[in-house]
């Protein structure tokens, strides 16, 4: 899995490519924890090129969301494919994370 990082004003955009499963989630967790410890509060995660997410990936997102909640930050998700969105719905994560169809809209939501 590849993770691209892109800073847009007060928002950090993380673009994921590939599969977010039990083997790739540790890399994603390391990245998310390092950016939060680095002081980032507003995260947009772009799922356009993400083919699959497992419960291991969802756990990392839950971990990140809780860390950011304590510093008044949040994670916003963008461009989820239908099959990925379905996993979020099954896990009840749709109520925790705001979703946007376009990355630009997700970034604007922090304004």
């Amino acid at each position: 899995m590849e993770i691209k990082e892109n800073k847009k004003d007060a928002v950090l955009l993380l673009e994921l490519k590939g599969r977010l499963d039990a083997s790739t989630s540790p890399k994603f967790q390391k990245k998310i924890l390092s950016v939060i410890e680095g002081g980032e509060k507003n995260l947009v995660i772009d799922f356009s090129d993400l083919d699959y997410i497992s419960s291991a990936g969802l756990r990392v997102l839950l971990l990140g969301a809780k860390k950011l909640q304590s510093v008044d930050g949040k994670i916003v998700l963008a461009c989820l494919a239908d099959h990925v969105k379905e996993v979020f719905d099954i896990a009840g994560f749709s109520v925790i994370f705001p979703f946007y169809d376009a990355t630009e809209d997700a970034i604007k939501s922090f304004e």
Partner: peptide, 14 residues
């Protein structure tokens, strides 16, 4: 995870 999401505001960190 669904149950943990349902209690999202009841714990500080996961």
């Amino acid at each position: 995870l669904r149950e943990l999401a349902a209690f999202f505001d009841d714990y500080k960190e996961f």
